[in-house]
């Protein structure tokens, strides 16, 4: 269960303060596939980075699996990001100098998984997302956008996280490929009982999720 209460994130830009998230509260049960929609600049990415412990809220609390993120130390936050969260970004954000396989192995290295286990699991995950053989050994520059996003999904799943956060994962892909990626995420959340929160502009996609939260100017306007 993810429980967000009175979440406020204020950015200072010059003299003015921008409330990127303004007193947001919601709950997402375990294993649910939820989506966040809203106009550009409404605070979707900000909310996601708070949920993923990439940033600290100005006020409010985020309780995931009974643990309050706002009470964790910096060191605990690193461990939390490493083991409890999987990220998928719009721009894939793979490490360009590493092969697909090595990209998927990286979070496991941070989680101190043994080398042999890293390799087998990374290879299995890549096969699950549809990347086989020599493609696993290619660097991101030699993979298509859709393939790179598959690698990113495999990487997000590497440490068997409880929560996957995806920020417009299909934003850079054509609609057919986007649908495939989305179906992949959907399938995985079912099979591994992983909670997924995805930010999207695509209302058709949002319509297929278990719950949709709409943001407007930092406020939650509908659930």
């Amino acid at each position: 269960m993810i429980e967000v209460k009175h979440l406020v994130k204020t950015f200072k830009s010059g003299d003015t303060n921008v409330d990127a998230t303004n007193n947001i509260s919601f709950k997402v049960p375990d294993g649910q596939f939820a989506s966040i929609i809203g106009r550009s600049g409404s605070g979707k990415s900000t909310l996601l980075s708070l949920l993923g412990a990439l940033d600290k809220p100005t006020s409010g609390s985020i309780v995931i699996g009974g643990q309050d993120l706002t009470k964790l130390s910096d060191h605990e936050l690193i461990t939390y990001r490493c083991k409890a969260i999987g990220f998928v970004f719009q721009g894939y954000n793979l490490v360009p100098n590493l092969t697909a396989l090595e990209n998927v192995m990286l979070p496991m290295e941070f989680a101190k998984v043994s080398r042999a286990e890293r390799k087998t699991r990374a290879s299995e995950l890549l096969e699950q997302v549809g990347l086989k053989d020599d493609k696993q050994l290619r660097k991101p520059g030699r993979l298509s956008g859709g393939e790179q996003q598959r690698v990113a999904i495999a990487r997000a799943l590497a440490n068997k996280p409880k929560l996957i956060l995806a920020d417009e994962p299909t934003g850079n892909l054509d609609s057919a490929t986007g649908k495939m990626i989305f179906d992949l995420l959907h399938k995985l959340s079912r099979s591994e009982n992983t909670t997924i929160i995805v930010v999207t502009h695509d209302l058709a996609i949002a319509g297929k999720t278990d719950a949709t939260f709409k943001l407007d100017d930092g406020k939650l306007v509908s659930k």
């Binding site: 060191h75 690193i78 461990t79 990001r81 490493c82 954000n93 793979l94 490490v95 990286l106 979070p107």
Partner: peptide, 16 residues
């Protein structure tokens, strides 16, 4: 910078 940010996001510590 971006690569560093990603590495941190997926659990890399400053030290590593």
């Amino acid at each position: 910078k971006r690569e560093i940010g990603v590495t941190k996001a997926i659990g890399g510590s400053n030290l590593s």
